[in-house]
Computed example of a mutant assay.
Amino acid sequence: MTETLSAVTELTPEACWDLLRSNQFGRLALTVGGEPEIFPINYVVQDGTLVFRTAQGTKLAALTVNDVVAMEIDGFDQTSGWSVVVKGQAHPAEWGADFEDAATAGVHPWVATRKHVFVRIVPRFVTGRSFVFGPEPGDD
């Protein structure tokens, strides 16, 4: 008997967090001037939140106007793939315990520029899916 795999499977919250912890690179989606924008970021998971670094500029300015963000990570191999989406609120970790905690998270800029601002994403929703790739066109 041949085992049939579901084409799309919802990931458990635990599986989503495992994938988030095992990766460092994601895409941050936010609104800039009324338009959606996507920025590549490197991040770490810290105490149920995501932390990344940035400098003064577009991302930081946009977060002062609208702190609602989404972040997505994904991966794949020859036969299957997965995607995790985090939706929540982002705020600069600017002072006190929040800044001190973020500074110990171990996130370092990938680009050789100074990025003194830590931003913490507090998730409201974490969802994910895994999926099996379909046959090549004409293979059916």
Rank of each mutant, 00 (worst) to 15 (best):
V65E: 15
G96C: 01
A105E: 03
V126T: 04
T127E: 06
F118R: 03
V117C: 02
Q78D: 10
L60R: 11
A97Y: 05
D139W: 09
L63P: 15
G57K: 14
N66L: 01
D77L: 01
T31C: 14
R53Y: 10
F76Y: 13
T58H: 08
W17P: 06
V69N: 13
A112T: 13
A93N: 05
A102N: 02
V69Q: 04
G75Y: 08
I38E: 14
R120H: 05
A29T: 03
D47C: 04
D98C: 06
P40E: 01
A93S: 12
R27N: 02
T113D: 07
Q78Y: 10
V86D: 00
A62H: 01
P109M: 05
V51H: 04
S130T: 15
V117T: 14
V32T: 07
L5K: 15
L5H: 15
V122F: 00
L20T: 05
E136P: 02
D67R: 14
T54S: 09
T4N: 12
F25R: 12
S6P: 14
T4C: 04
V68N: 02
P40R: 03
H116A: 13
E3I: 13
V69W: 02
T2L: 05
D67H: 10
P92R: 00
T31M: 12
G26R: 10
W110K: 09
R27G: 03
V32E: 01
E37Y: 12
F133Q: 10
F99N: 05
L5S: 05
V44H: 04
A90D: 01
D140W: 13
E72G: 11
T64N: 15
A97E: 13
E35H: 08
D98K: 02
P123K: 05
T9K: 04
G138W: 01
V111P: 00
K59W: 06
D140G: 14
R124Y: 06
L5Y: 07
H108K: 15
D47W: 11
N42S: 06
Q24D: 02
I41K: 00
V69P: 06
D140C: 12
V86I: 03
R53H: 08
G106P: 07
E94W: 04
T127Q: 09
L50H: 00
G96W: 09
Q78L: 12
R53D: 09
W95Y: 07
T113G: 05
G57M: 10
H116D: 14
G57F: 11
E72P: 08
D98Y: 02
Y43V: 03
K115Q: 15
R27A: 03
V45P: 07
N42W: 11
F118I: 05
P13Q: 11
T54V: 11
V86L: 06
